[in-house]
Design a protein around this nucleic acid. Structure first.
Lengths: 176, 176
DNA sequence: GAAACAAGGTTGAAGCAACAACTATTCCGT
DNA sequence: ACGGAATAGTTGTTGCTTCAACCTTGTTTC
């Protein structure tokens, strides 16, 4: 039997604030990183994925799927990051069609410098707003939604890995 | 005393899936509405806000704050919606600086046609993925985050209002 | 061993968002 | 009542995302 064609009041009271978060939170993430490091949140995420990979190297297609993005989008982003000296591109040794992206030293330093401010921002606007119980609930909820949006869970496969090596004790920040 | 400069494993396990949802869910919303109705989710939201207002009329600045957007952005969006015949603009009677946006009949019909598909999409990817308890938790969590992102809670003031009039029993859809 | 097809990326054009600059009206103070 | 400040929107420019077309290289198939 068909359900209501519009939201029930119950549903609406859940959906409306979620939509507001979807609208505002990404903007806040971009605003802070843009202001402090001239990076988009997506830029930062891509660079972080590279620091998480040993060898600091990753295939374009692997990066794309790990960052929930498309190849064209990633290609443009990586081109810009390359021009700024944060990554380098090289044809993969084993497959001449493929491209490997390598994090440069500058790129690695950039991530180390950018991370504390980003973490602080995420805590201020998200994590610190929640009780420990709510954090645990949010984890389950986000994973449940993610299973629908991305049944393969490509992102979680890699991004949920270990902490960024050497980051935990990164010394006081000096901008590059 | 200062906290860790990078995420704790605990924090990361909450944050990473949330980032994935922030990346994928808006795209899914836009994709469905774009494919079925040639509307962005933001377009749809703006039109819906107008149907929720009695008189189907609303001041630009009120619309902007209710939709968590900026005036320039809204101005462009409304200009496009006006060209497509879904809204009209008129100078406010009481203040010649201000602009009132009025939903046309076509615009109202458009919302009625678009809503069932959108609601179904939201249920498929979000609401139906959660238990009733989780829905309640998500409501609290989203509101808590929202209080940080938007202390004025401008959006909730209006968007959480009553259901769209006449929508509950909208008859079977024929595309315009 | 070529021809067809698939896989991996890149590039260019079009659309939307953000920011800054600008216009027009209203408010305020003296 | 006049000049300056504030309010309400619009417009143009720039940057990012998407989509489609394209170019290589690799893989099948007959």
């Amino acid at each position: 039997m068909p359900r209501s064609r519009s939201f029930t009041p119950e549903e609406r009271s859940t959906w409306v604030p979620l939509v507001a978060v979807l609208e505002l939170l990404p903007k806040q993430l971009d605003a802070q990183l843009q202001a402090d490091e001239a990076l988009t949140h997506f830029d930062y995420f891509v660079l972080t994925m590279l620091t998480l990979t040993e060898g600091h190297t990753r295939r374009m297609s692997a990066l794309a799927s790990a960052s929930n993005s498309t190849l064209p989008r990633l290609s443009h982003v990586v081109a810009r990051l390359e021009q700024r000296g944060y990554v380098q591109r090289q044809t993969a040794p084993d497959d001449a069609r493929a491209t490997d992206v390598v994090l440069t030293n500058d790129g690695h330093r950039k991530v180390l410098y950018a991370t504390p401010g980003h973490v602080e921002n995420v805590r201020r606007y998200v994590l610190d707003a929640l009780t420990p119980e709510q954090s645990a609930q949010l984890r389950e909820i986000a994973q449940a939604i993610l299973r629908r949006l991305d049944p393969e869970a490509k992102m979680l496969a890699t991004a949920a890995g270990d902490a960024v090596p050497g980051l935990r004790d990164a010394s006081r920040n000096h901008r590059p």
